[in-house]
């Protein structure tokens, strides 16, 4: 059983919704991630989505675009991201760590190699938004070979029969895109979210984790009534943008506590 599956099994027993913060590796400062992840784990985060910066993140809104640009300016590359994952494990982080990145840096590094190296670093899987199941052959095989979960997306635009196909290929959990759009903070949840998640639920027993636009405690609570987990990305990045360096950890901890 993978670390991700174990985490969801435990949360289910505890009847808790998984809280998965998204952090851009090397943002706001190059070393920030090493302090943020352990602190947020203590503050109640259950899994982490760790962004790997890319020059052309076409599924992301302005906030995560800015964070990625800053991380690139800070000299972050894929090797640094893998080193960060390894360092987090050395620091005793227990929560599942998922790499979230666009496909080209993985292709350039070598899909097989990057899966081997992520697994060796103690990472648990990949979230790659520009690899739909039709193009997932190589990544999927490499993930299986190295015991990583390949997280697949379903969106409100995904037809039922396709949800079933995607669920068969996926492991760990299904990433349910909460709206038609790019990442970014929203004031309210999409009104169709409940129906969409019910539709997804009919086709899979995998945990359903909702991301895109989840910005506040009431969003997280509402998602908790419909799904197994919530991802908070842009809202957390936005907090980090506002915080002075010395308050990064304390401010993020307070924000993540406030979401629960």
């Amino acid at each position: 059983m993978s670390r991700i599956a174990q985490t969801f099994a435990r949360l289910q027993q505890q009847q808790r919704t998984a809280l998965m913060p998204y952090l851009m590796i090397g943002f706001p400062r190059r070393e920030s991630t090493l302090a943020l992840v352990p602190a947020l784990e203590k503050a109640g985060a259950d899994l982490f989505e760790l962004g790997i910066p890319f020059s052309d993140p076409l599924a992301d809104g302005a906030t995560i675009q800015r964070a990625g640009q800053q991380a690139l300016t800070n000299g972050v590359n894929l090797s640094f991201c893998l080193e960060t994952v390894a360092a987090l494990r050395q620091h005793g982080v227990q929560a599942p760590l998922l790499g979230m990145g666009y496909y080209n840096p993985l292709v350039r590094y070598g899909v097989e190699q990057v899966c081997a190296d992520l697994a060796a670093a103690g990472g648990d899987g990949w979230i790659v938004p520009d690899v739909p199941p039709e193009e997932a052959h190589e990544l999927h095989h490499a993930c299986q070979r190295y015991g990583l979960d390949m997280i697949m997306f379903v969106a409100p635009t995904t037809p039922n029969e396709r949800i079933a196909e995607i669920a068969q290929l996926a492991s760990g959990f299904l990433y349910c895109v909460a709206l038609t759009g790019v990442t970014g903070q929203r004031d309210t949840l999409w009104p169709g979210l409940g129906d969409f998640l019910q539709r997804v639920r009919q086709h899979t027993d995998l945990p359903l984790v909702v991301g895109f636009g989840i910005s506040r405690a009431e969003h997280v609570a509402e998602v908790g009534t419909m799904a197994d987990g919530a991802i908070v990305g842009s809202a957390l990045i936005h907090q980090l943008e506002q915080l002075p360096p010395e308050a990064e950890v304390a401010g993020s901890v307070a924000f993540v506590r406030g979401l629960q």
């Binding site: 076409l58 520009d130 739909p132 193009e135 697949m152 969106a155 635009t157 895109v177």
Partner: peptide, 10 residues
């Protein structure tokens, strides 16, 4: 190929 986010696939 078709390397697009799931939202666009359909």
């Amino acid at each position: 190929g078709r390397y697009v986010p799931e939202t666009l696939f359909s």
